[in-house]
Design a protein around this nucleic acid. Structure first.
Length: 730
RNA sequence: GCUGCUGUAGCUCAGCUGGUAGAGCACGUCCUUGGUAAGGACGAGGUCAUGGGUUCGAAUCCCAUCAGCAGCUCCA
């Protein structure tokens, strides 16, 4: 017998092997609404026999577990449905493309996917066939049958089926389990943990959405599979609504709004990922810059300016050049062969230099009269590399800067610092360039040239905590000022296994302990993530989602014991001895480009008054009132407002419509009445016509709204993303 | 970088299986002087992303390059 507590709160004894479905029959519920069951926190099939083995497997053996049923209303049930839909897609593909190999096929926040190795490659034009096959399978409403096998047998079965990825998965991940499960439906058998809906007929609405490449086990060095995305719902109208929401979300996309509202543009002639800020966008940025600049002065920062390029040596020392070489624009060598020798050395170091190439390089070097002392005498390629590298290191070369810190470090080093001077906080809106992979570029959110609201703090060990806290508070203040409340905090930690990190372990441990301590102290919900640290230190990132649910890092605060060592930074302590300062890197916005992109989506282009590039527009009813309109405009401009007048020979309705579509916060309509009373008819972007007001009252009203940085509306995300992690994989 | 898709006027898009381009908006000129989301007429605008190829003939088919989109990988 097993004991269970049912949703009504009563605990009862039931015979071993009874299923949730059977228990449901004993109640009076209508069965077809039910999709799966939840045993404590685990979702299981309705047909799963409840027995001791299961309870032990779920870790519920030593208490009386709660059982409840999931209906089509439950979010978790939707995940189950979508996972089942992924199976149906896989089954359909296997029927249409015999020999296709399956990898993983989980539910996602908005649907499902399945990673498949299939030849010839599936194309989007194949979707109708696949969907038709799925539909006909779904109409058969065949049950999903769970089968458990000893792991060795399961492996053999997968091997028999030619499912080599499943075999590899068993070897990698599942070998430690005595038994694993499959789900069978008709001829289709798939290694899968489940759970599934009772039968395929539950899938009443589905659609294949897109196709993409995805590496096996998320590893770029492994084969690339085809990932087919789709979504599924219990009801057709939910699918329709979802597709509608997707369309709505796209309208909020900063790339669309950025064009429509004249905020930014990109030009292939300038280069991809290089943002051109249009006047409206530049005004937003200028306002943000002024805002943060004022905060920095209040908080004891000192402004600095540094050049856009620096000696390569600087970035060799900092480690940025060697670590991020392929994500940078190539170094600029003054010697005409610099780039060539550099390419040569790179090929050599990667073992990719052919004999022909080597010959050609040598020939070139000789014809330019270059004396590569001893290259020909060098026996091994590491000796050859040595020769090339020592030549390269002697060359004058520059790097467009990928980071501001090395420059700021040189400012720190420009004089001998006393502990009395610390903390030193050097701030600069520093523009940096990184050669991001083409596939990563996206509007303003991922670009190749961007300006960070950067600063570097040089502090004593005693000051670390207070400075970290005050910077986190600054980030929170910035986010609050624009009403960005939907963010998550990520504490990026070192991955001890990875080799990408520099510095001593004890420093890392100390830095990480401080960060974790601070976020706990501040009571911020956070997730600590291994492998998310910068190469020189751990960091705290503020991450937001864009209109399509993708995550972007905005503000960041980073603790760094390593660059001070690499650059041998010092200050003189109270004891008259030399000590090493600690650095804090931080950027509350992150970059103006990304922040602005996110803001566009956050406000759906309708910026609050303090940020709006055009805050008010004067709309004369006819050209008889142009003079008065100009007067009103001048008054407002005199009070510091960004204002224009619409003097086109258009009817007032058309002028209003245009101003509305441009999302201008206030329209000031002027005609006979207004001219006589020195007033304006105020029209609000949100509330519409507010009637006649004295101009002075309007100025006061707008001034207050700017002063208080009032946020009257932000965009509601059309797409609903689940925040729970209920996912199943096949 | 990888997989798949896309690229026609400033913008949004139409142009069937190859026969040398079209709409709306925006823009310009003129008319209209209008009171809270589109007044009217006329006009100008495209070597159909770029470069090759196939063909009597290419926006349309093929290849390459560039750029963009979705995803993967990466992100100091």
């Amino acid at each position: 017998m097993i004991r269970l507590t049912l949703p009504d709160g009563r605990t009862g004894e039931y015979s071993e092997g009874i299923t949730p479905a059977e228990l449901l029959m004993q109640s009076s519920a209508r069965r077809e609404q039910y999709v799966a069951a939840m045993l404590d926190n685990q979702i299981i099939d309705l047909s799963r026999p409840l027995n001791r083995a299961l309870l032990e497997e779920l870790g519920s053996a030593d208490r009386v577990p709660h059982l409840r049923w999931l209906t089509v209303q439950d979010r978790e049930a939707l995940d189950v449905l979508r996972h089942s839909a992924a199976h149906m897609m896989a089954r359909a593909i296997l029927r249409l493309y015999p020999g296709a190999k399956l990898a993983f096929g989980p539910a996602t926040e908005t649907g499902f996917y399945y990673d498949i190795d299939v030849r010839p490659a599936i194309r989007e034009e194949d979707f109708p066939r696949i969907e038709a096959e799925m539909q006909s399978l779904i109409e058969r409403a065949e049950p999903f049958e769970r089968i458990e096998l000893p792991t060795a047998e399961a492996r053999a079965l997968c091997a028999d089926l030619g499912q080599t990825y499943k075999v590899e998965h068993i070897d990698d991940q599942l070998a430690r389990y005595p038994r694993v499960s499959f789900y069978r439906q008709g001829e289709f058998l798939d290694l899968c943990r489940g759970p599934h809906v009772p039968h395929a007929g539950y899938i009443r609405a589905f659609k294949l959405l897109s196709i993409a490449g995805a590496y096996w086990k998320n590893d770029a060095s492994r084969p690339q599979l085809q990932r087919l995305y789709g979504t599924a719902f219990f009801r057709k109208e939910d699918l329709e609504a979802f597709l509608q929401q997707l369309e709505e979300a796209k309208k909020r996309d900063h790339r669309i709004l950025g064009r429509q509202l004249g905020i930014f543009t990109l030009s292939p002639m300038v280069g991809s990922g290089l943002v051109l800020w249009l006047p409206k966008g530049a005004t937003i940025r200028y306002t943000l810059e002024s805002f943060i600049r004022e905060e920095l002065l209040k908080r004891g920062y000192q402004p600095v300016y540094t050049p856009h390029i620096g000696r390569l040596e600087l970035y060799r020392t900092s480690g940025h050049f060697p670590y991020y070489r392929d994500a940078q624009y190539p170094p600029l060598f003054l010697h005409p062969l610099g780039q060539t020798i550099d390419t040569w050395a790179e090929a050599l170091s990667q073992g990719k230099l052919s004999q022909d190439q080597e010959k050609a390089f040598l020939e070139l070097a000789r014809s330019w009269g270059l004396d590569l002392h001893g290259y020909n005498q060098a026996g091994s390629s590491s000796e050859k590399l040595q020769v090339l590298q020592s030549w390269l290191e002697e060359q004058e070369a520059y790097l467009v800067k990928p980071m501001n810190c090395p420059h700021h470090i040189q400012i720190y080093k420009s004089e001998l610092r006393s502990y009395r001077d610390l903390p030193i906080r050097l701030a600069e809106f520093g523009t940096v360039y990184r050669y991001e992979q083409t596939g990563e570029l996206a509007g303003m959110t991922r670009v190749r040239g961007f300006t960070q609201d950067d600063a570097h703090l040089f502090v004593t060990p005693e000051q670390v905590e207070a400075e970290m806290v005050s910077n986190l508070e600054l980030v929170l203040y910035v986010l609050k000022s624009v009403g960005l409340t939907d963010y998550r905090v990520r504490v990026g930690l070192r991955d001890p296994v990875s080799t990408k990190y520099v510095g001593k372990e004890e420093n890392w441990n100390r830095a990480q302990a401080i960060l974790l301590d601070i976020v706990k102290q501040l009571g911020m919900p956070y997730s600590a993530e291994v492998g998310e640290a910068a190469f020189y230190g751990p960091k705290i990132d503020f991450v937001v989602r864009d209109c399509l649910g993708r995550e972007w890092q905005l503000g960041t605060v980073q603790l760094d014991y390593n660059l001070p060592e690499r650059f041998e930074l010092e200050y003189v302590g109270k004891d008259n001895q030399r000590h090493r300062p600690i650095m804090i890197h931080r950027a509350p916005f992150g970059s103006f480009e990304r922040f602005c992109g996110i803001l566009i989506e956050h406000f759906a282009g309708a910026f609050p008054l303090w940020l709006a590039p055009e805050q008010a527009r004067v709309l004369p009813v006819s050209d008889k009132f142009h003079d008065y309109a100009r007067q009103v405009e001048a008054r407002l401009r005199g009070h510091g407002f960004r204002v224009t007048s619409d003097l086109r020979p258009q009817k007032i309705g058309a002028k209003i419509r245009d101003a509305q579509l441009e999302k201008i916060p206030y329209m000031l309509i002027v005609g006979e009445r207004e001219q006589q009373t020195e007033g304006v008819a105020l029209r609000d972007r949100i509330d519409g016509d507010l009637g006649l007001h004295p101009l002075s009252a309007v100025i006061e009203r707008l001034a207050r709204e700017v002063q208080e940085k009032t946020i009257r509306q932000v965009a509601k995300s059309a797409l609903v993303f689940s925040d729970r992690g209920t996912r199943f994989e096949s």
